[in-house]
């Protein structure tokens, strides 16, 4: 009988002779009974579909690869936000460029990169891009300034009331609330106000008060009076005269029973406050009361 003959018999691998011998053995019946019984055996129930569902819910719940990527995603999000913020603030700061401001009772002289000069009157602000100045001569003005522009590319003064464009000249721009005045002293300037362009030759002034446009004269080859520490007015409503007085003398003006629309023509000193007060009050027939940093204007015929 060959090796492992029981296994061979179970697998139907025994030869005829071997089979005859084996069948005659006394154990044969027992083996037959065992094999017959084990043919009927069953393993415990196993639900393949349920096991597969369990498996799928398990692998979906963990998803190891996706979790591993998430921290990086978050990091990149934050990094991108920071980079964007830095870039944006860099460009914003760059566009701001130079920024020059004067306080009350203060004048400043500024020389631009192309040797153009700006004299900034009190309570005014200009900003411009110093880096790209030679490509683009752009000035943002809030307040009043006198410009001596060197010859070159287009020179633009932008204000919230209108813009002034020149090539090379001397001119003054005053831009206050409701008040926009441009005086040309040399050359030719182009004033764009309310979408309309006005050519202003030397010796002319452009004035707009609350949208009402007036053309005035200016001194040829001169300069605005405030450069000589004086403020000069010609038929200007008293309101704007007093505003200017406040700015030049750093003082608070109060009025009582006064018609602020009455026109004023004259000059006041920007250095001597008492002289300036008289210069305003006498021709306008007003009374004044000076108390520290406050001054009260009131009508003369008041009781």
């Amino acid at each position: 009988m060959q090796e492992n003959h029981l296994a061979k018999w179970l697998n139907n691998e025994l030869s005829e002779e071997e089979l005859i011998v084996f069948r005659q053995s006394e154990e044969y019946k027992s083996y037959q009974k065992i094999v017959a019984a084990t043919d009927n055996l069953k393993s415990p129930d196993f639900n393949v579909d349920k096991a597969l569902l369990d498996f799928q819910s398990r692998t979906k719940a963990t998803e190891p690869k996706v979790i591993a990527m998430r921290p990086y995603k978050k990091f990149f999000k934050v990094a991108a936000a920071i980079a964007l913020l830095l870039a944006a603030s860099y460009f914003y700061v760059n566009t701001l460029g130079q920024n020059i401001t004067t306080q009350f009772a203060e004048n400043k002289e500024i020389t631009l990169p192309d040797n153009s000069e700006i004299v900034l009157n009190a309570d005014s602000n200009i900003s411009y891009d110093e880096k790209n100045w030679n490509q683009k001569r752009n000035i943002n003005l809030d307040g009043e300034a006198f410009f001596k522009v060197a010859k070159g590319e287009k020179f633009t003064v932008a204000t919230d009331n209108g813009s002034v464009t020149v090539l090379g000249t001397q001119f003054n721009v005053e831009n206050r609330a409701g008040y926009f005045e441009v005086s040309c002293y040399e050359g030719l300037v182009s004033v764009i106000y309310d979408g309309k362009e006005t050519k202003l030759p030397a010796g002319n002034s452009f004035l707009a008060i609350n949208g009402k446009i007036t053309n005035l004269d200016a001194i040829k080859n001169g300069h605005p009076s405030w450069i000589d520490k004086e403020s000069t007015f010609k038929s200007i409503p008293l309101k704007y005269v007093l505003d200017e007085f406040e700015r030049q003398h750093n003082i608070t003006v109060k009025t009582q029973d006064i018609n602020l629309d009455q026109l004023f023509t004259g000059t006041f000193s920007n250095t001597d406050i008492n002289l300036a007060l008289q210069s305003i009050s006498v021709p306008s027939q007003l009374k004044i009361k000076l108390e520290g940093t406050k001054v009260l204007f009131y009508a003369e015929n008041m009781p």
Partner: peptide, 20 residues
């Protein structure tokens, strides 16, 4: 495979011995 045959053979043998 031979090792498996050996196991089957031994398993059947000891099953019969236990049962008989």
């Amino acid at each position: 495979v031979k090792a498996i045959e050996k196991r089957i053979h031994l398993a059947l043998k000891s099953l019969r011995e236990k049962i008989d």
